[in-house]
Amino acid sequence: MSILVNKDTKVIVQGFTGKEGSFHAEQCLAYGTKIVGGVTPGKGGQEHLGQPVFNTVADAVKTTGATVSMIFVPPAFVGDAVMEAAEAGIELAVIITEGAPVKDMQMAKAHATKHGMKTLGPNCPGIITAEECKIGIMPGMIFKKGNVGLISKSGTLTYEGANQVVKEGYGITTAVGIGGDPIIGLSYNQLLPMFEADPETECIVMIGEIGGDLEIQAAKLIKEQITKPVVAFIAGQTAPKGKTMGHAGAIVSGSAGTAAEKMAALEAAGVTVVVSPAEIGKAVTIALSKLSK
């Protein structure tokens, strides 16, 4: 089992024939993802990577029955692409593109919600169900199948965390990159209950960072609804105030959004909070060995 995507998930790519879209779609196909087509306006009717190209998402959905779209269009067109996917009946849009204007994401996310479409990202590495389906830019070989679910704002910390879990002899059910922008789609509070409900996931790793209060909201939800052990790391304990640390949303404004505040809230909710990402693997091992007793 897994959450959101599996070996049967049909995926289209928006920005299919572009440089980034092509490169990563090819990698996803090689991983085994069922990419059934793509959209590039004006190139409808052509074939790319052995799959049909459509002019519109509506055409692609009608012909292929895809339920997920992987979005690689340039930043200025992300909002438009997400809204198009939502109206075409896509169920989940995975937005990889970095640098989409915040205003566009406000509009696009609101529109997606109205049409019942979930979104992931933007500026995220995507989602991977180990050894079944990879939608995004993660290096597939790290993710061995197992019993740990992973949610992370950061791409490379996703890889770091998954790699440690695998080195400890465990593996991943699904790993989800949610992105570090000020406005993002699915976040901890939507994903944690999915992992709670997934019979194969026995432990959840959540990786957060400074800025905003999504981790604080997650702490509240964990306390009330999550029975599986959660291991957390919050990046940016040593980040200065008022400075954006790479991710547009990673900023401590005034006294709000600090790592210390988030770590304390998670600890109070019974989460194992590690002070360094180097300790994620060991903390997962301890959590899982307690379960088997």
């Binding site: 950061s154 960072e209 990046a235 940016g236 640390m245 990402p277």
Partner: peptide
């Protein structure tokens, strides 16, 4: 010198804890 903003912050934090 790190790739990725999250890992870059995580690296700073790890150095600090050591």
């Amino acid at each position: 010198m790190v790739n990725g903003a999250g890992l870059a912050m995580g690296t700073m934090d790890t150095i600090n804890h050591m």
